[in-house]
Design a binder for these strands. Structure first.
Lengths: 230, 230
DNA sequence: CATCATTGTCTCAGTTTGTGACAATAGTAA
DNA sequence: TTACTATTGTCACAAACTGAGACAATGATG
């Protein structure tokens, strides 16, 4: 990461949502030998579109290319500047700031994005600086560096606000899913239980779903239809 | 504007909304001797909060201090980089880039905000580089530099989306206003006519208004109540 | 074939919204 | 003083939408 390759003072952070075992989860990285946890983030190349930089980072971590991605806020408080945290990260990886990494200790403004992906499609990959990149339920996050906790809170709030307006819930599921699975996603995002019949009626009335064949789970009850988003 | 005072590659642009004569309007600056029109914008000082930088800029242009301000998107495409436009602006003002202004010809990422202010409270002030800072109806904007047209479009869209959710319409009016004036603001923002009785019922049911004395305009009809937001 | 959990759909009541009606008001004109 | 007019605040009714439960159909099990 030589200094010349990236725009200084500008970073991005991504809140990558997945859904499994009934929980809304996000990807969190742990840095080598530090016990420090952070959102996956990165920098923007000198001639690269901001959005493309984020997609590039997501692809490196998840292997996915077609990702539902939305920018939601840019965090620009001076107080989010904490060179000691970055110094710790670099030193734990045997990097001397003097060797062209001084710029990483500067103040950064961070553009935050959230992504919705199908949990099953992903095997999280750590990067050079991190031990691990793992799913954590949003209610059981470790302590995060800097203001990353606030970034997550705001991501969840934005996701909730957009849930009905943009009908984005389906991006957290496989292409085909049952109505019950979709309802579970909504409940995990909103943090509340929903009424089955009302939910079903609303989704069908929205005319955004295509109904496919039935899905036989082997359980002893009526088989539900599979749906996909139009 | 010596280079050391500002973060490089980072700017902000502001879409400042006002309401008068039945139209939604925004403030547009015209640069000296160029015929170029642009949104009011600026840069962030090295130790300044991003939000504070925007408030500082708004205060310089409008004289106002308590301003309803909302960040809505960060524009980061490489294609918005056009050094010729900036060079024209500087040269028209007799500034040589070599004299410490080279950084203004670099690529910028711009964080966009919109503000809602009471038209009557403002006497727009041009800055050192601009001839004028004037109100334009959103439907009669001049051609704007770079991607400023898109920024305006997105600001209006965000304002529409937030109108009911955040009940922000009142920020475009004096403290006290009639129900009809408030409805006119809504209609200007949404670009559609609304039904009088439905609008009145919805606003009163929201329990966000305080009813004050009647307002006698001198016209030959029933005088409306004045309202203010709680 | 009886049992059981789950699903798709329907019904009914309660609430919200679209639409027009109507009396009250504050001026103007006779 | 008395019509007359434009506008306002409120109400009434119908239409649309939502919450809550009922119920038959289904797909396995034993």
């Amino acid at each position: 990461m030589p200094q010349t390759a990236y725009l200084p003072h500008i970073a991005y952070d991504s809140v990558i949502f997945g859904f499994s075992e009934g929980d809304l989860k996000i990807l969190i990285m742990e840095y080598h030998n530090t016990g420090l946890f952070a959102l996956p983030g990165g920098f923007v190349q000198l001639q690269e579109n901001l959005n493309d930089a984020v997609l590039r980072g997501l692809n490196e971590r998840t292997g996915l290319t077609d990702i539902y991605l939305e920018q939601f806020y840019t965090f620009g408080d001076f107080s989010r500047f904490d060179p000691e945290v970055m110094r710790t990260l670099l030193e734990a990886n045997g990097i001397r700031p003097d060797d062209g990494y001084q710029w990483m200790l500067d103040r950064f403004i961070s553009v935050a994005y959230y992504a919705l992906i199908n949990y099953e499609d992903v095997t999280p990959r750590p990067d050079a600086l991190s031990d691990s990149c793992e799913w954590y339920p949003v209610n059981e996050l470790p302590e995060l560096i800097l203001d990353h906790r606030q970034i997550v809170e705001r991501a969840i709030q934005t996701l909730r606000d957009n849930l009905d307006r943009k009908l984005v819930g389906g991006n957290l599921l496989p292409k085909k899913f049952t109505m019950n699975e979709l309802q579970n996603v909504y409940e995990a995002i909103l943090g509340t239980k929903l009424r089955r019949t009302t939910f079903q009626r609303k989704m069908l009335a929205a005319e955004v779903l295509t109904r496919h064949e039935k899905h036989f789970s082997g359980k002893a009850h009526m088989a539900p239809y599979l749906y996909s988003f139009k």
